[in-house]
Amino acid sequence: MSTLGSDVKGLLSLYNAAYLGTHGEIILDEAISFTRNSLVSALADLKPPLTTQVSLDLETPLCRRIRRLLARDYISIYQEDATRDDAILELAKLDFNLLQSLHREELKNITIFARDRLVECYFWILAVYFEPYYSRARVITTKVIAHISILDDIYDVYSTLEESQRLTEAIQRWDAKVVHQLPEYMKDYYLKLMHTFKEFEDLLASNEKYRITYLKEAMKDLSEAYFEESKWRDQHYIPTLEEHLQVSLISSAYPMLECASFVGMGEIATKEAFEWITSFPKIVQASAIIGRIMNDITSHELEQTREHVASTVHCYMKEYGTNVHTACKKLQVLVDDAWKDINEECFNQTTFPIALLQRIVNFARMIEILYKYIDGYTNSSTKTKEYISLLLVHPVPL
């Protein structure tokens, strides 16, 4: 270790590799602690571009960073490398800018009844897949997350419990004829939801149309979870952590979104894949844990300033009699364990291709970007705005 301690690039490689550890690999847990401390100590004496590379990886390890931002960052790092190949650098810049122009056109063409979050929604899904051949899938999933964003607001902010119940029942029935049962302000949303899912079906080939059935069922599950949380809120009920997670992992919307992410993909997304993704497998549970808990840790204080369902943080505090700091620390352990679950599922033999598992991994990676320090989706004028600018507004200078 004494030799490795002076090899910064070696330390950085070990640091990043150790985050691919699974349960029981204590030596890798120790390696993370050792390499992190060593890299932090060495940081002040490093020179660019290594300083930038180490700083970025210390903030978020390589395996948890979204690929498109990683590419943008690495182009800048590689440009400062004295051993760079200028032809490769130019090709990377041209490739990035060409793909960026495609993404901009795609976003421009997406129109949907949505709150002022469409760009943020597209940015979220861009982290899930950026490749040009996933254009159809990206558009579909962006529209789904935009609808979910509105639905979350309706349950969380605007509706009474009785109105929430009516909306839940209408979504369970999935029939435009029941729209008259809804309050006036919900009718446009409900009809648009029906219409959008019909649009999705029209986009699919005849042998793909069955996928919409799975998507509808996932939306029904989500609405039921939102309604259950509405009841908890109005009853001022604080469940146990286990009880909370049984509902809030679904209301994290990740099981629904991960199902949606398969809908627009090609032949690789088979009926067996939809049966699997909607059975709430371990890797989907893990991504939902990461999404739910990291969201709650960064937003629980703000949400408790208004009438809101108890977060996992408050449930833990009540159940175990701890303070906020201890609760957040203990919940972070669940997040770290969930990442190990994801690693295990990706390493283990599976009947499903890595291209499908990668969507789920990328959803978890996006949480690391949006909810590491603050709620970067709600407060998108902060670091999120910078990320969006890098990926969708400003080309790489040639």
Rank of each mutant, 00 (worst) to 15 (best):
M219E: 04
S206I: 10
G24F: 03
K93S: 09
E201M: 05
L89M: 09
I26E: 14
V324Y: 01
D375V: 05
I293E: 01
I32D: 05
Y226F: 15
I290F: 02
E59Q: 12
I171V: 14
S6Y: 12
I27N: 14
E169S: 12
Q172A: 00
V128F: 03
C259T: 15
W174N: 06
F130P: 01
R72A: 00
K385F: 15
D57H: 15
S252C: 07
A114P: 11
M194P: 03
L167E: 06
N37M: 04
K271F: 03
E243G: 03
N207V: 08
S13L: 13
T51D: 09
S389D: 14
L391A: 09
L222E: 00
D296R: 05
D57R: 15
W232D: 06
I277H: 10
R211H: 00
I367M: 11
N323S: 11
R115Y: 08
P353D: 15
G291K: 01
R138S: 08
S287V: 10
S76K: 13
I77Q: 02
E59R: 13
A355Q: 13
K93V: 11
K209I: 05
V324A: 12
P281Y: 02
E258T: 14
P255Q: 04
A170W: 02
H325A: 13
L334Y: 11
Q332S: 12
N295Y: 11
S389Q: 14
E275V: 08
F280S: 00
S223K: 07
L215I: 04
Y377G: 00
M317N: 08
L215Y: 03
P397A: 13
L118P: 02
I88W: 04
T22N: 07
N295E: 07
Y226T: 03
I110A: 07
S287M: 02
L398K: 13
D81V: 08
D7Q: 10
L203I: 09
R36N: 08
I27D: 14
A114W: 01
T384H: 06
I75D: 01
T213D: 11
Y122R: 05
E275A: 11
R67E: 08
T83K: 15
L50W: 05
E229T: 05
T298N: 04
D73N: 12
L191S: 02
I77C: 02
A127L: 03
I125A: 03
F123Y: 15
E199Q: 15
D221N: 07
D81W: 11
R36L: 00
R359D: 07
A170M: 06
M219Q: 05
S248I: 03
L392M: 14
S223W: 00
Y185T: 01
Y373D: 12
Y78V: 00
S248Q: 06
E243N: 11
Y387H: 12
E30R: 11
S2N: 15
E162C: 04
T22D: 07
K318A: 14
C315F: 06
I140D: 08
L102F: 14
K108G: 13
T142L: 07
K383I: 09
Y129V: 02
E59A: 09
V324Q: 12
I171M: 05
L99K: 14
T278C: 10
S33F: 09
Q235A: 15
S279D: 13
H23Y: 11
L191K: 00
Y185R: 08
E80A: 10
Q165W: 03
N295I: 01
E307F: 10
E106M: 03
G266R: 12
S6E: 14
L222W: 04
R136Y: 04
V324H: 09
C63A: 11
